[in-house]
Amino acid sequence: MRLLQQEEISPLLADHPEWTGGAEHLSRVFTAADFPAAITVVDKVAVIAEEMNHHPDIDIRWKTLRFRLSTHSAGGVTELDLELARRIETLLASESG
């Protein structure tokens, strides 16, 4: 899997300003309505991750979720991370109402 350069990552960050990061990793914080809603989001992201066979790091603190994406085997951000970020963003948009 090829590592992406910052200029290849920048369009995603411009289109989805809630995402931050660069060539090493991408991250996004999402605050759910409550703890059960946060767990529901994690469950839905787990389904997406399994479909892609690409798994994010997820930190859960009460109703706040922090997603961190990188392709560990490649040592940074690849196209898989961009696609996973897009899919997570679509899910979060639907969860936000």
Rank of each mutant, 00 (worst) to 15 (best):
H16W: 00
I60H: 06
N53W: 00
L82G: 12
K63Q: 08
M52Y: 00
A14N: 09
W62I: 08
T40G: 13
A14H: 02
G21V: 11
T20D: 13
N53C: 09
R68N: 09
E83I: 08
P36V: 09
V77C: 12
F35A: 15
S27P: 01
S27M: 13
G75A: 12
R66M: 10
L82H: 07
I48R: 03
I39L: 13
A37E: 14
R28K: 15
I58K: 09
P36Q: 11
T20I: 05
D34H: 05
E83G: 04
V77P: 02
T64P: 00
A37R: 14
R28P: 10
E79V: 06
L65E: 06
F30V: 10
A38I: 09
E51L: 07
S27N: 12
W62L: 10
V41N: 04
E18S: 15
R86M: 10
T78Y: 04
G75E: 08
T64A: 10
A37G: 08
D57Y: 01
E83Q: 15
A32T: 10
G22W: 00
H72E: 05
T71C: 04
R61V: 06
L69M: 09
V41H: 04
D15M: 08
H54S: 12
E83P: 01
V29S: 15
V47C: 02
T20P: 02
I60Q: 07
T31K: 14
H55Y: 07
F67W: 04
R86G: 09
P17L: 10
I60C: 06
E79F: 03
E51H: 07
L69E: 02
T64I: 04
A23L: 02
V47M: 00
L82K: 09
T40K: 14
A46P: 02
T71N: 03
S73I: 11
G22H: 06
R86P: 02
R28E: 09
V41S: 06
H25G: 08
E24P: 01
A33S: 14
A74S: 15
H72K: 15
G76W: 02
G76K: 12
A23P: 00
I48L: 12
V47G: 02
F35R: 15
H25C: 15
E24L: 14
S27V: 04
D59H: 03
H55A: 07
D81A: 14
H72Q: 07
D57Q: 05
V45P: 01
W19I: 14
A23T: 14
T31L: 08
A38C: 08
D43F: 02
A74N: 05
L69H: 06
D34N: 15
T40A: 15
I58H: 08
A37C: 08
T71H: 03
H16I: 05
